[in-house]
């Protein structure tokens, strides 16, 4: 069990104060981005994926569970938020030919986000209940299969518009007075949500709950013998991770203004894993660094077609064979304490 961490994590205790300093520096750097002339759309997109990768890292880095289906939360929350913002009306069949229709007008941004997050929390509860019944490698295969199941459902469901996706989503006024269609305002809203989500994960990791999670990762039988109901802890961690991944998915709708099948596909799940692996599994800041690198790479190499896939594969192989600590993990190892 512990082979995952022997090699990757520094043994020294967390230096929470140093980590907070890094956090403040990071927040300050991100806050001045609009003044530097960097394309804000790119940074917003990277921030959404950074939150997603951090949520994924909560599960693998601190719970030892490798989910290969995290795209399902990104895609589900995205579809729900996009649908609520653009159409509003909810209808689903309950018996052959009969439909329940809840007539709703297009909703405001905050209600759209709440809807997306609630649905992904529910999805995490259901899929988590099924998938934590098996451990290790089986857990990865089950989450992958479940996300593929959802992919096929979304391919056929009428409200997702199949291959076309939901396009042209209105950004609207957050709380009635914050105009999200202005790029600078949207940027700070995305940044605020990202920082809040990050702090929540940071707090979770450093809480007693996080300590129990780490003990499960290191040695589950021992955690059980100490009286912890490890299945409940794993399920809670899975739900927390899925819900935060859903938040990232809802947020991404405002940036990209569409929701499509790409976000539910297994290649997306693979990219989430890659971001976290490049940055450093089980590090605090690794997923953020990884997300920025992978998103930047996709931007610059967009013209090279399938070579992007090949390069991603090469990075996967290289990281696993020679660079298992990832960038931040490597730095943390040099500096001598956790990051």
């Amino acid at each position: 069990m512990s082979a995952l961490t022997d090699d990757t994590l520094p043994a020294s205790p967390r230096a929470v104060r140093d980590e907070m300093i890094v956090f403040v520096v990071m927040a300050a750097l991100l806050a001045i981005v609009p003044a530097t002339g960097i394309y804000p759309f790119f940074v917003m997109q990277a921030l959404c994926f950074a939150l997603l990768a951090c949520a994924f890292n909560l599960l693998i880095g601190f719970g030892g569970l490798l989910s290969f289906g995290h795209a399902m939360f990104l895609g589900t929350a995205g579809y729900v938020t996009a649908h609520l913002l653009k159409v509003g009306q909810i209808s689903f069949p309950y018996w052959a030919g009969h439909w329940v229709v809840i007539p709703l007008p297009p909703l405001s941004p905050e209600l759209g986000i709440i809807g997306g997050v609630l649905v992904s929390a529910l999805l995490a509860l259901v899929t988590g209940y099924v998938s934590i019944r098996r451990q290790g490698i089986y857990f990865s295969m089950i989450t992958l299969a479940l996300s593929q199941l959802l992919y096929f459902i979304y391919l056929q469901a009428p409200f997702t518009h199949g291959e076309d996706g939901i396009q042209g989503i209105p950004q609207g006024m957050l709380f009635g007075f914050i105009d999200l269609s202005k790029p600078t305002i949207l940027y700070y809203v995305v940044l605020a949500v990202f920082l809040a989500g990050f702090l929540l994960i940071f707090r979770t990791i450093n809480s007693p709950f996080g300590e129990v999670l780490k003990s499960i990762r290191e040695n589950e039988p021992r955690a059980i013998s100490l009286g912890y109901k490890t299945d409940q802890y794993k399920l809670l961690a899975y739900i927390a991770s899925g819900t935060l991944a859903g938040l990232a998915g809802s947020l991404k709708v405002f940036v990209a203004q569409n929701a499509s099948l790409t976000d539910v596909h297994w290649t997306m799940s693979g990219e989430i894993v890659l971001m976290t692996l490049v940055g450093g599994l089980g590090t605090i800041f690794g997923p953020i660094v990884g997300a920025f690198i992978i998103i930047a790479m996709q931007q610059y190499l967009a013209g090279f077609g399938q070579w992007v896939t090949v390069i991603q594969g090469v990075i996967f192989v290289g990281c696993v064979l020679a660079f298992r600590r990832g960038i931040v993990g490597e730095v943390a190892n040099r500096v001598g304490h956790s990051l």
Partner: peptide
């Protein structure tokens, strides 16, 4: 490649072979 993963967590085998799959499929798609 794979022989160097002996003794490591199972997850690394999955990640390495996933990377190999991406490379092979990407090359053929090209």
């Amino acid at each position: 490649m794979l022989q160097w993963l002996a003794g490591l967590d199972h997850l690394y085998g999955l990640l390495l072979t996933f990377g190999i799959a991406l490379i092979v499929q990407g090359l053929f798609q090209n």
